[in-house]
Design a protein around this nucleic acid. Structure first.
Length: 85
DNA sequence: TAGTTGACCGGAA
DNA sequence: ATTCCGGCCAACT
């Protein structure tokens, strides 16, 4: 566990329902705005199922990836009203 | 220790 | 609008 990863998880955990954050924003809040890619890597390896990582999306508005089924993430975001194409 | 990989980003063609 | 390319950082081999 590095400081950065803890920060990232903390930030992701802090995202409230109905809100979304880009990987870049999370990285910036964690201290390194250029580590957007690393954020995804951390999520993938840590598999934080206790964390609302589904509220973290890409900067271009796309969903991105997910540890489990991608459809679940999409459904949750639609349910929370954060992703309505 | 060094090389690869990937839930990314922004600019260029 | 879409595709391509280089850069960035942490985890894995």
């Amino acid at each position: 566990m590095t400081i950065f990863s803890e920060k990232v998880l903390e930030v992701a955990r802090n995202v409230q329902r109905g809100k979304t954050m880009t990987y870049k924003e999370v990285a910036a809040r964690a201290g390194n705005s250029k580590a957007a890619r690393a954020v995804g890597a951390i999520m993938a390896s840590n598999k934080d199922l206790c964390i609302p990582c589904h509220r973290v999306i890409r900067s271009d508005g796309k969903i991105g990836g997910y540890n489990g089924l991608l459809g679940e993430k999409r459904m949750r975001l639609r349910e929370e009203g954060a992703w309505q194409p």
